[in-house]
């Protein structure tokens, strides 16, 4: 028996919005410690790692470890049926073929149940090595979203260049070049709006706009985004999900073709 209850269905809605562009289906690993999702997009360029801790739920019960393959599109549709104030409960039996979504209105007058068929999926769990990144940048997620959207109009990829002064985003394309520089905030009195650069050594990486624009869909989950970068390793773009977990996006960098040859 698996049951997870979340008073704020809005959180789950936002999580689904954040991953539905990248993933078509994903395996939800449910264990005593919580729910974990790890899935790559079809091109194997980006990876979504979602972690929802059990203590973050209002009620959490997981008798046996379950891995449930779910269609993200379908799940997103179901969650769209929930009111933002509703309470959501996920329920499944031990050897499940279906998962049930139960939406309760705050005044308990409305109860909606949605049952979704599970899909069999190959296990494809990647071992992500623990890395100490050369640069860790924290910045307002809104700002990051804005930059990604703006620069993606100029080119298909954005170069992140991080130095002591701050972080520089740049894109160039047929129309010209665009550069946005963010300096480290001097006095961090407002934590949410601060730009914090934690740099061991300068990095310069290029990433595809297409994926970045998918990542920023997670912006509503958290006011701050954390970008972890090292040269020639994937970018980690992390959003906290309230106090129940986090969503991490890994994005493989674009590398110079000449270098490779």
């Amino acid at each position: 028996m698996f049951e997870a209850r979340l008073v704020q269905s809005a959180i789950l809605k936002k999580v689904l919005d954040a991953i539905k562009d990248l993933l078509t289906e994903a395996t939800f690993e449910c264990s005593d410690s919580g729910i974990q999702v790890q899935a790559m997009d079809n091109a194997h360029v980006s990876l979504v790692s979602l972690n929802l801790r059990s203590d973050g739920f209002d009620k959490y019960r997981c008798d046996r470890n379950l891995s449930m393959g779910m269609s993200i599109a379908c799940m997103s549709k179901i969650l769209r049926c929930a009111g933002s104030e509703d309470t959501v409960t996920l329920r499944a039996v031990d050897n499940p073929e279906n998962i049930t979504f139960i939406f309760e209105s705050p005044n308990k007058e409305k109860l909606a149940e949605y049952e979704m068929k599970l899909i069999n999926m190959d296990q494809e769990h990647l071992g992500i090595p623990e890395t100490s990144y050369s640069c860790v940048v924290k910045m307002p997620s809104q700002e990051f979203s804005r930059i990604c959207r703006d620069l993606s109009q100029f080119g298909e990829s954005i170069t992140f260049a991080c130095s002591k002064e701050g972080i520089k985003f740049s894109a160039s394309g047929d129309y010209g070049q665009a550069t946005v520089k963010l300096a480290q905030t001097a006095d961090a009195d407002n934590e949410e709006e601060a730009v914090v650069v934690n740099m061991q050594e300068p990095v310069k990486l290029t990433f595809s706009c297409r994926y970045l624009n998918c990542f920023i869909k997670a912006g509503p989950l958290c006011a701050q985004v954390q970008l972890s970068m090292s040269n020639d390793v994937p970018l980690v773009c992390e959003y906290k999900i309230g106090d129940i977990g986090h969503i991490r996006y890994y994005l493989a960098p674009k590398i110079d073709d000449d270098e490779e040859n």
């Binding site: 090595p129 160039s172 890994y250």
Partner: peptide
């Protein structure tokens, strides 16, 4: 013109998208 600009872009940064499989192992 289009092709030229393409080559220009590529000439500037002849980038290639890598996959995560290069970095992470199963």
């Amino acid at each position: 013109i289009v092709s030229e600009s393409h080559s220009e872009v590529k000439g500037k940064k002849n980038t290639k998208q890598t996959t995560l499989m290069n970095f992470f192992k199963k």
